[in-house]
Structure formats: C-alpha cells, structure tokens
C-alpha cells in the first residue's frame, strides 16, 4: 500500500510540476522531481534539460528528487526511501540501470546521495561522492536550491566524464603526506647504511667476550631443566569480512545527512 501511495503521490507531483515533459515522454520518469516545490518552473526545466543531456551523452542518469518529508513514504530511513524510489520507478539508464540520485527531504532537512549500477559504482567512488557532497551542500545551507542542484549536476557530470575516460575520481593523498611517507623510510635507510659505513671507520673496540680462547670441547651443560608452568589461551573471533554493507546491493554507499 505504501509503495502504491508513493507512486501515486510522485506521479501526481510529476503531472503537476512537469506537465510538458510528462506529455512528451509519458513513459519516462523525469530527471528532476520537485515535490517540495523548491524550484521555479524555469529552473526545473533548465535542470531537467541538463540532466537529460548528461544521460544521453554518457548513458548514466542523474536524478534530483525533493520531498516534503520522506517519512510519508518510508518510515525507516532516508536511505531506504531513496532506494525504494529508485527501484520502484525502475530508474537508471540502460540494462544495468546506471544512475545517481539526490533526494532532499525538507521536513528535517535530510538528504541522501546514492548511485546504482556497475558503471555508477565505478564512477561514483566514495571519494568522488564526498567531493560531490562538498560541492552542493554549501548552496543548500544557504537555501540556494537551484545553485545547489546545478552544482550537483556539474559535479556528477565531472565524475561520470572521468570514469568514462577510465580514470574515476579517486582519493588523492595530499602532497605533504606523500612527501612525509616517502622521506621517512628512505631517511631511515640512508642513516642505516651510512651508519654501517661509519662503523667501518672505527675498528678499535674493546672486546666483551673471549670466544677465541674457549678450550675446544670444554663447554659442558650440567643441568638442563625445562619446566612447564601454565598455558594461556586467547580467542579472536574472525570477522567474516562481507566487504562493507551496501544497502540494496548493486549500488554505491549512501552519502546522507543534514543540510
């Protein structure tokens, strides 16, 4: 019942908000669904056109959905709501349904960013999604919805384009960290080898032992005792190592929070 209700509600909002697009492509879910009415019609159309261009060019859909309160549709969490929405409307491009969705819930200013499909997983790395979040969140905090969605689309296209060229956005270690990591072991090795060289320069050393003067065969062991005292036992539970929870399998990790 809940799903049916969600479907009806969103379809209704679609019809009201994007009657032009709906009439043109009645079978297609729009890329921009503004149920919370944060955008003007012109802004929504501009964003829709931009998202459509990206989907057509790269074969990976980028969605924007705004709701008054996600709990109306899913009481569990904003992440579950996003997944249900994506799967219920069969969102995404191509057979693999590759796509990225940004859902805003205005009641408590929640958001969720989630990608689905093999290409989306490849393109939208955790690091990439982190960067993408940082690009649009400042706008939303200022209630600049159009600015935020525009930044989202630009950032998403950038990530898709990089992945399309075979180099998805990956974590780049800061140069200072790289330098520190490179210099520490190499300096240690340098000092170690130079220490060996230096030790060759000082060969006059007093001797602490007299192994050269042991009478051959004179070393005798008179007592040899090996007494068992006790046994200690430690048990570690082995982690099954499922590889990290990805709700709704086949998708990226969720990047969600408050804006």
């Amino acid at each position: 019942m809940k799903k049916l209700f969600l479907c009806l509600l969103i379809c209704l909002s679609l019809c009201l908000s994007f009657s032009v697009l709906a009439s043109a492509e009645s079978e297609t879910f729009p890329y921009v669904t503004d149920a919370a009415e944060l955008l003007t019609e012109q802004q929504a159309q501009t964003l829709e056109a931009e998202a459509a261009r990206i989907a057509e060019r790269y074969g990976c859909a980028v969605y924007v959905v705004t709701l008054e309160d996600y709990r109306t549709y899913n009481n569990e969490s904003v992440e579950r709501c996003t997944e249900e929405l994506y799967h219920y409307f069969d969102l995404g491009c191509g057979e693999n349904r590759d796509g990225l969705i940004l859902l805003l819930s205005m009641a408590e200013r929640d958001y969720d960013l989630w990608g689905y499909g093999p290409f989306a997983i490849y393109a939208f790395t955790d690091y990439g999604l982190d960067r993408l979040e940082q690009s649009f969140l400042p706008y939303f905090r200022q209630n600049d919805w159009y600015g935020g969605f525009s930044a989202y689309l630009r950032g998403a296209e950038n990530l898709i384009a990089k992945a399309d060229q075979g180099e998805p956005e990956a974590y780049r270690m800061p140069l200072a960290t790289k330098a520190a990591i490179a210099l520490a072991p190499s300096s240690l090795l340098g000092f170690l080898v130079c220490g060996i060289f230096k030790s060759q320069m000082k060969t006059a050393k007093e001797k602490d032992t007299a192994e050269d003067y042991v009478v051959s065969g004179s070393a005798r062991l008179l007592i040899r005792e090996d007494q068992f005292i006790n046994r200690t036992r430690t048990v570690h539970v082995i982690d099954s190592g499922s590889g990290g929870a990805r709700p709704g399998g086949g998708g990226t990790s969720h990047h969600s929070g408050k804006f």
């Binding site: 009478v215 062991l221 068992f228």
Partner: peptide, 22 residues
Amino acid sequence: NERITETDHYRVRRVGTVEFMR
C-alpha cells in the same frame, strides 16, 4: 570462526661450565 592462540610458559634453567685458555 575463531582464531585461537595458545601460549605455553616455561621456567628454564641451564647450568654449565666453560674452560678458557690464555
């Protein structure tokens, strides 16, 4: 799914003699 480590503790004693010349 457990990794078990058993450590046996021993008290060891050695008594011996060594001769040195010059």
